[in-house]
C-alpha cells in the first residue's frame, strides 16, 4: 500500500492556505516574507508529487529553478527591508503609509 497523490496535494493545499493567511493577517514585513516562503514551498511539494506520480522529471527541474529564484528573491527582499529600516526605523506595514493620501 502506498500514499495516494491526493494526500500530498492536500498537505500542499493546507500549507499554501496557511501561508496566505499569514500574508494577510501578519503586520510584520519579515513574517510576511516567511509566509511567502511557506507558499513557495507548498507549490514545490505539489510539483514534486505530481512529477513522481506522472513519471516525469520535468517537475523536479522546475522545483530546482524555483528554489534558486526564491533564494535570489529573498536576498534582494531582505536587502530592501534593511534599507527601508535604515530610512524609516520600522518594519511594520501599518507604519508605511506614505502613498496612502
Amino acid at each position: 500500500m502506498h500514499i495516494p497523490l491526493e494526500h500530498y496535494l492536500i498537505v500542499s493545499g493546507i500549507l499554501f492556505s496557511l501561508g496566505l493567511l499569514g500574508v494577510i493577517m501578519r503586520r510584520n514585513l519579515l513574517v510576511i516574507y516567511m509566509c511567502l516562503e511557506l507558499m513557495l514551498n507548498a507549490a514545490n511539494l505539489a510539483l514534486v508529487a505530481m512529477s513522481r506520480f506522472n513519471d516525469n522529471l520535468n517537475g523536479q527541474i522546475m522545483v530546482f529553478f524555483i528554489i534558486t529564484v526564491a533564494a535570489a528573491e529573498v536576498s534582494v527582499g531582505l536587502a530592501l527591508i534593511v534599507a527601508l529600516y535604515r530610512k524609516r526605523q520600522t518594519a511594520h506595514v501599518e507604519d508605511l503609509t506614505t502613498m496612502k493620501n
Partner: peptide
C-alpha cells in the same frame, strides 16, 4: 489523478 507510482528516481 494518476494513481500508479512511477519508477522515476530524482
Amino acid at each position: 489523478l494518476p494513481n500508479a507510482v512511477a519508477h522515476s528516481e530524482g
